[in-house]
């Protein structure tokens, strides 16, 4: 069985909101998969359906071939989920929480060594016997990740694990998740930090309004846009009195003598821009072009087809 997660024609609505509109997606084993999309795109809904927390109206989802509804026991045993909300049980200590979570999966004392390893790897050793209530937000987030891993799942899904997390912890978490991936775990990460997806993921899906609008390797996605768009910054010796009419369409930002253009490489050329500027009396003193990154792709794709 090579497929970690199969999502087949999944639909879900909440009242009039179509959270997922017939989504299809296949995530292979061993992938580091990024699920991107603006707020309200349906990312959490999809994850919650995979996790069995939400029931789809239609379609089916399987984890390592096990249907998440009909064969939920095996599906859930293979799956670890880090929920988006920072939830915790205020009655227990970190270690109690982990033991209890492992117990739900039918694991007991034999699993204790793995729990110690998790506590250590996530830097929770000092807090192992502290009550959950007394932990900082970042610490609670780590416990949430440890809880998702108590049963050594083959597939780990993280729903915006780094939202509102400080830079240092973000780095620690990235390292940790990378390690899990190296050791063979399939990772699915949702995020709206694009640099995070760019840094970590092999393959990326972008969804918007419950529809899959892009699905490709990171390189191919970047390639698509780099081929078509680029950003040009020009600094002039002195601000122009008026930007030539031919350039107003491309002009995205004007900051005194600094002008930023977005070019479509199919019909705009850098030389034409520079010529037009010179003709208007501008003297170019500095010039920078920038390749597109995921952010551009994201903006470009999610704007398409919107009213």
């Amino acid at each position: 069985m090579d497929t970690a997660i199969t999502v087949n024609e999944v639909r879900k609505h909440y009242g009039k909101v179509q959270a997922l509109q017939g989504l299809n997606l296949t995530i292979e084993r061993g992938e580091f998969f990024g699920l991107l999309g603006p707020n309200g795109a349906g990312k959490s809904t999809l994850i919650n359906i995979i996790a069995g927390l939400v029931r789809a109206d239609d379609g089916r989802v399987a984890v390592l071939g096990h249907d998440v509804v009909n064969d939920y026991r095996r599906a859930r045993a293979e799956l670890g989920v880090v929920p988006q909300e920072l939830v915790f049980d205020p009655f227990f200590t970190v270690r109690e929480v982990l033991r209890i979570q492992a117990g739900y999966f039918g694991l007991g004392k034999e699993n204790e060594a793995w729990l110690d390893e998790l506590i250590d790897a996530l830097d929770l050793t000092d807090k192992a016997d502290s009550n959950m209530r007394s932990l900082s937000g970042g610490m609670k987030r780590r416990v949430l990740i440890a809880q998702a891993l108590v049963h050594q799942p083959k597939v780990l899904v993280l729903d915006e694990p780094t939202a509102g997390v400080d830079v240092e912890l973000r780095q620690t978490l990235w390292q940790f998740v990378r390690r899990l991936h190296r050791e063979g775990m399939t990772i699915v990460l949702t995020t709206h930090y694009l640099e995070e997806a760019e840094l970590l993921c092999d393959r990326i899906a972008i969804i918007d309004h419950g529809v899959l609008i892009a699905l490709d390797s990171k390189r191919a996605l970047l390639g698509k846009v780099t081929g078509a768009r680029s950003r040009l910054s020009v600094t002039l010796a002195a601000p122009l009195t008026a930007v030539p009419a031919a350039l107003t369409e491309m002009l995205k930002q004007q900051d005194g003598a600094r002008l930023e253009f977005h070019l479509d490489k199919h019909h705009d050329s850098i030389m034409a821009v520079l010529d037009a500027l010179r003709a208007a009396g501008g003297e170019v003193v500095d010039l920078q072009t920038e390749e597109a990154d995921l952010e551009d792709i994201f903006v470009q794709l999610t704007k398409r087809g919107r009213p």
């Binding site: 069995g52 927390l53 859930r76 915790f88 999966f105 039918g106 809880q147």
Partner: peptide
């Protein structure tokens, strides 16, 4: 309490029937 604090998910994520 578990529903309002949200920690009911820990049970719901598990294979408990």
């Amino acid at each position: 309490q578990s529903k309002i604090t949200g920690n009911i998910v820990f049970v719901l994520l598990s294979p408990l029937s």
